[in-house]
């Protein structure tokens, strides 16, 4: 069972992030960490390989400045190897370009049974890359998976919906994006961290993957960020004095939100 997991390395969400007013994009020239939402995909992949009793987990990531600290975390969790796509020419790449590059890196590998990704990154939140990768690789795409079981050449997936979940069966290989919170990602152990140091990380440039400079980065982006604006400041809440009947106000409030 060979699983490729797409992981993103992002600025630590705990640090106040900054947008570059010139490019209207997130400043990413700080130390990056593994996107927490990707730890679920890594964990799920490790569990599938464990269960299969053979194979390994390979990571694919695209990041500026050959950044690999987030990869190190996923390798320390137990992934066997990684491909890191990094190239100054990639600055400004949109979601579709990113998907094409990740797909190209995945396509380099033989015998991939399954591609797993998170549902969306915790910095860009486009949420389109997993399905785009599937389209580029011409593989089936299943999104919002909350459980994955592999059975021979097939995969059974519980796909989260508003009402509950759908049972989906799909042939392998395919691309599956997983929802957060469905497995408990392991913490890297001391032994895992030390072992990660000697695990192979293959670096790739755009050219290595068959792209010329005009196809990637700002030049190749079909998507343009027109404007950015600060989120509105949190406004003062409404205070309801409890006169014994305030629960009706709470119910009314929740009904207006259409959550009950």
């Amino acid at each position: 069972m060979n699983v490729v997991v797409c992981v993103k390395q992002i600025p630590d969400p705990a640090d106040p992030g900054a947008l570059d007013p010139g490019t209207k994009t997130l400043k990413r020239d700080v130390k990056l960490i593994l996107d927490e939402s990707d730890t679920y995909g890594v964990e799920m992949a490790l569990q599938l390989v464990d269960k299969a009793g053979e194979g390994s987990v390979h990571l694919v990531s695209m990041a500026p400045n050959n950044e690999r600290s987030g990869l190190a975390t996923a390798l320390a969790m137990g992934a066997a190897s990684a491909t890191l796509i990094s190239d100054p020419a990639l600055l400004g790449s949109d979601a579709l370009t990113t998907a094409k590059l990740l797909a190209a890196a995945i396509g380099e590998r033989d015998g991939v049974d399954l591609v797993i990704s998170g549902s969306e990154s915790s910095d860009g939140y486009t949420g389109t890359v997993p399905t785009q990768i599937a389209a580029v690789l011409d593989l089936p795409s299943i999104t919002a998976a909350k459980a994955i079981t592999v059975d021979g050449g097939q995969v059974q997936i519980q796909r989260q919906t508003n009402a509950g979940y759908d049972d989906v069966t799909c042939s392998l290989p395919c691309v599956v994006s997983v929802t957060a919170g469905v497995v408990e990602p392991r913490y890297p152990s001391f032994k895992g961290i030390m072992a990660a140091k000697s695990k192979p990380v293959d670096e790739r440039t755009a050219a290595d993957l068959g792209f010329d400079a005009g196809q990637v980065g700002w030049a190749g982006a079909g998507q343009e960020i027109v404007d950015i604006a600060a989120a509105p400041a949190r406004s003062a809440g409404e205070v309801v004095e409890d006169d014994g009947e305030s629960y009706t106000k709470v119910i009314e409030f929740l009904e207006n939100l259409k959550v009950i």
């Binding site: 600290s69 320390a76 913490y187 890297p188 961290i193 030390m194 140091k197």
Partner: peptide
């Protein structure tokens, strides 16, 4: 130095979250 930084990074996350 790198090993020490990697270990402390993961220990820090573990201690903060667990």
């Amino acid at each position: 130095d790198d090993s020490v930084e990697m270990v402390l990074t993961e220990v820090g996350r573990f201690m903060a979250e667990v």
